[in-house]
Amino acid sequence: MKPIIIDRLSISFGPIRVLHDVSFDVTAGECFGLVGESGSGKSTILRCASMLTDIWDGTVRIGEHDVRKMPVAERCRTVQMVFQDPYGSLHPRHSIRTALDEGLRINGFDDREARLAQAMRDVGLPVEFLDRYPHQLSGGQRQRVAIARALILEPDVLFLDEPTSALDVSVQAEVLNLLVRLQQEKGFTYLMVSHDLAVVDHMCDRFAIMQHGRIVEVLDRDAITGGGATQPYAKQLIDASLEYERAI
């Protein structure tokens, strides 16, 4: 279990400033949500903190260490990410075995066969699926494979980039429950991006509302139903979301 500390993270793509001095802390073992409209910079935070993008300023610390100064191998075994679109996050020509095994090989894990089987069991997939290809799986199964790929390196922190938004509602619940169970079993720290407050309400202990690359407000889960938001934009977003829930 490791905490995440993000301090004055900012990034510009050309002349456009995408993140403006974003700072927040995630305590160890917590699930922290990032909510906001499209283009508010939620996913960018994850891509910066996982060093997929490295042109940012500020500091991101996971546990004791600055992610910038971590050796690649250590970073891989600390942070993993689950992507939004399970159709795009698995290599179409790699079998599930290859997809999962890659990380083990690169990081020099031993006893790989047992780890592969364990990872499949962890995400509730039959071990025989190892020899399948992504196009032979459904969306929910693919997302389970993507989760297996993330947890097979035994990370402490999982970044979830809208892990359920590309899935059917019934499958969404399955995947969310799986994520909750994995957190209880393995004590992950989650940093989750979502635009669905219902998902955040189900998963997260605290969440931050973002707008135009800034954090508007950091709230507890109770603030969704209890009306604890103080900032006008946060109120508006929560009200709109509740309104929408009632409408359906």
């Binding site: 997929l52 942070v79 993993q80 990410m81 996050s89 290599h91 690169i106 993507a146 790929r149």
Partner: peptide, 11 residues
Amino acid sequence: ADYIAAARLQG
């Protein structure tokens, strides 16, 4: 693509 990003995250 995300699978390239995933490969990079795997080190």
